[in-house]
Design a protein around this nucleic acid. Sequence first.
DNA 1: CAAATTTGTAGACTATCATCGAAATATGGA
DNA 2: TCCATATTTCGATGATAGTCTACAAATTTG
Lengths: 229, 229
Amino acid sequence: MKNVSHLAIATSLFADPTRAKMLQTLLDARFHTVSELAMSAGVTPQTASYHLAKMLELNIVQVKKYGRHRYYQFISKDMVPIIESLLCIAPEEKINSLKQFDQNQAIRYARTCYDHLAGKLGVLLTDTLVENNILQKNEDNFILTQTGEKFLINFGINLQSIRKKRRSFARCCLDWSERRHHLAGALGQAILEHLFNLKWIVRLSNTRAVKVTSLGIKEFKQVLSMDLE
Amino acid sequence: MKNVSHLAIATSLFADPTRAKMLQTLLDARFHTVSELAMSAGVTPQTASYHLAKMLELNIVQVKKYGRHRYYQFISKDMVPIIESLLCIAPEEKINSLKQFDQNQAIRYARTCYDHLAGKLGVLLTDTLVENNILQKNEDNFILTQTGEKFLINFGINLQSIRKKRRSFARCCLDWSERRHHLAGALGQAILEHLFNLKWIVRLSNTRAVKVTSLGIKEFKQVLSMDLE
DNA sequence: CAAATTTGTAGACTATCATCGAAATATGGA
DNA sequence: TCCATATTTCGATGATAGTCTACAAATTTG
């Protein structure tokens, strides 16, 4: 290969449909085997292996070996906002089947954006926190109000340990499907984890979409006045 | 083309070395002709024309016609942080000639990041504004202090008109060459424009690198205590 | 009006990349 | 130890994209 612009090398990672599918699968922050990634991308394990070798070479995934299984995961969260912002400028995807439509709707409704909640639910939750004066929007960040501190402590969030983390506390993340901001950062991560622990939402297999449980529907309404029905 | 991931479509724009070069040229926010872009990318005008057609189709550039010249420019600033963040994950570029080394140094030293100042100088200026209590860093934003308001008004910045703009006021932008933040947003734009107007810095031909003038060296030192020698 | 310049289009060519089948390697289980 | 499973490697193949030459179209200049 000739002397090539490094921008092209970086983006060529995403510029193949198969790799793009695999990368979006990896956005659920879980470990995935070669076979799983092959299935989700609709290619053979040989093809998946070829692509994973490329991503290893360019240091965007890491691999852990357990017996004959290889578990792949993103090396760093830095990829996440890049991928989300690339999705913001991506053209609309054509839907060719009912299954694809359902999957698309599910992803748009509620998904993990690596370690925080995104989609319609993520944006609605963020809006609700702002409307209830728990958070205040300030350009590309959210500020936690005093009212909000009380509420979150009461809700079960350990603010002290979150504040110790060396990362953005309450960052805005531009939601590609809603084209508005949802809450990211350490607080976004803590809230997502807490929602899983409370079982208001659950993970699904083979997708980074998440499902609101019956309990969740009830509790979102009771605790946050969010009507999800 | 088969049913393709929209992420791949979006990123394929950047994933070709020629297009990547053209896009980085366009990052200087100026209009460029087909011939200019062809030259900066090292291809024939026909090849440049082919690539520009693709970018037009995917709505990232706009074209204005004046006689037989076609002037291309980015449609939106939204591409800029995406490109900068992609450059953050890009591998280091190999330097094969002294000229390339000089160009690389110039770009790293001081460049326009579409409409604000980036590079070593951009980060140093930002640091200086923070150290002198003109700005305060707050996660992904800067806050203008009262001291800072007085300073900037005195410096010749029209804060009132900037505040009216519907965009981020003083956003952080991650500098790919320094791997630290420089000031972006409406304030970043105003300061860059003002530095051009004061002739402390000047644009160069065929590059988005900017040059600090002799006057600029003097004034940066006198007004901001920045030693650029 | 002819020549020059800029840009776009068509077609051919080349290089590169992604794919899979077959086979090899590594590991686990019976 | 043999068989099964997961993954990687190799080689072949086909598809696609980017390139340039040649030419056409639009506009400007002399």
